[in-house]
Design a binder for these strands. Sequence first.
DNA 1: CTAAACCTTGCCGTCGGCGTCAACGCAACA
DNA 2: TGTTGCGTTGACGCCGACGGCAAGGTTTAG
Lengths: 130, 130
Amino acid sequence: MLIGELAERAGTSTRTLRYYETRGLVRPRRSANGYRVYDEAELRVVHEIRALLAVGFDLDDIRPFVACLRAGNSSGDVCPDSVAVLRRKLAEVDDYLDRLGTVRRQLHDQLARAIAHREKTCLRTRNRPD
Amino acid sequence: MLIGELAERAGTSTRTLRYYETRGLVRPRRSANGYRVYDEAELRVVHEIRALLAVGFDLDDIRPFVACLRAGNSSGDVCPDSVAVLRRKLAEVDDYLDRLGTVRRQLHDQLARAIAHREKTCLRTRNRPD
DNA sequence: CTAAACCTTGCCGTCGGCGTCAACGCAACA
DNA sequence: TGTTGCGTTGACGCCGACGGCAAGGTTTAG
């Protein structure tokens, strides 16, 4: 399988696949003319990468999952390094959820106060002979 | 007040203040020698900017708040444009909270399954004469 | 023979909020 | 008068995951 086909089957671009390669996540063989040649397993790898990216992982975080797949596991999640990343990410998300909740409350209160203030001003304005 | 003093009183850097100026958020006078001169009100403005940045606003979002302050209001929140931004941001945060919640669930489940799988493997391994 | 449809490497552009020089001018003090 | 410590503009660097383009090589079909 050449890069164009893999890109299409994985729903991404050749540029992206070459980028993953520079980051050490995908390793194609090379044919005689220098073309990248991928086997079927790489499709799985690329899907894993895309899925984790979509969840908010960066490429460094994803590396253990790829290694886990490449080691022959049916899932990229089951290796200790992957589990460690999952734990860390879950903690990060929880943290972020907390802060975002705080921000939400701040915004909500701020909005409520601003609207209340505008109500008052509006009443004063309406009671004034304009 | 010169730029260094404002930077220190606002808890930021001169670079930052000059940047805000290029983005049209802060407008100092100039003294004869070309130095930026800020009046006291600008301290308030910079504080507003910093507070909103900390909440996750970008500089474009902040512009209405600064204009509101500059228009003589006691708070930057009370003008219609500011309220509109607050509403939009609140909606964005709610949206993000939703998605982040979904991600959290995904991560949690994924982690649970990975650990369960490791448990099984571990048992099999322990039961095998290694 | 040539065009089209692949492939290659390499390099610049993107976005935001600055940090970090460089190279210079101005002010004040010993 | 030299040093120190302000100020000025301008320009590049950063981060991350690519997009897009240039300038070439390869293969296949007509």
